[in-house]
Design a protein around this nucleic acid. Sequence first.
DNA 1: GCCAGATCGATGACATGTCAACGAAAGCGT
DNA 2: ACGCTTTCGTTGACATGTCATCGATCTGGC
Lengths: 165, 165
Amino acid sequence: MDAPRWLDEREDRAWRGYRRMRRLLDLELARELTQDAGLSEPDYDVLSDLSETPQGRLRLSELAHRMLWSRSRLSHHLSRMQQRGLVTREECADDARGSIVVLTPAGRQAIESAAPGHVAAVRRHLIDLLTPAEVDALGALTHRVVDHLADPGLRATRPQPTAEA
Amino acid sequence: MDAPRWLDEREDRAWRGYRRMRRLLDLELARELTQDAGLSEPDYDVLSDLSETPQGRLRLSELAHRMLWSRSRLSHHLSRMQQRGLVTREECADDARGSIVVLTPAGRQAIESAAPGHVAAVRRHLIDLLTPAEVDALGALTHRVVDHLADPGLRATRPQPTAEA
DNA sequence: GCCAGATCGATGACATGTCAACGAAAGCGT
DNA sequence: ACGCTTTCGTTGACATGTCATCGATCTGGC
């Protein structure tokens, strides 16, 4: 761990800005979502991903994978949403272990009435504040980082135990 | 709520990319931090902010403000960190209600040994993947969004109850 | 000085997220 | 067909975050 390469002024500005934006944007979007639609961000994400499928149904595992959630977290969260009547679980025909998460009419209703306001908030607090070039840059940069993180090989460019186990 | 302006393809790409990056980057940074230094991200942030002050001491309220945390959350978290010997609380001389959060030698030690690795991780998974122009763009864009969100006036460009209460 | 209201930090109840473990059911090689 | 291993979703214990509330203290107007 010799001579750490600290962030220079510009890098630091970007990193701090990112974290601060992250926090504030989250707070504000969550606040508006709760107030206007009675949904939390996790609620919204679940409903949103479900509603993007043709039937509004997904294997729990598949949904967890798309959301980058653990199955455990999703299972807990679904139980709460099920209580509120937003989703249901059905048994899976081809795999007796599995369960299928199904959007209820109430859930469909909830996401459809929440979406316009939420998208508007995303615009108001982020997208519409950026130039088209910045939108593209953000798209490019985030996807590059995501691809990097998703690749288990690339992620490991660090002082490695070079296979001694 | 007429004709919502949905996100076009590029905007959607940026927004999804942002959220995905957010999640993956967080998971990875938290993972490495725990593994290499035994700290959570919140731990690191507290220690980091404290260590940036000359004496390693801050009013609880002031620290909460800088971190964009509620006083309650910080109080709870400090209790846990105090248990582990990373920080202490001292009474405040000029305000008998207040308490001052103090970095212990162990806390100083912890942040100093964690920092190089953490910065390296931030580089590896984010900063070093960007071009200098992208770093600058990210800095500019995030700060603009932050300024916007911090300004209670600007935040309210939405279908407003136009003062009828 | 005194009182009304604001602020400070702590606390308990509760919501949410993580982690390790589990039983049940598939997959897979033989 | 038989075990061994993996995967699926659930569960309970626990860590963490939020929210409302509290007592103590400060502040400003009178």
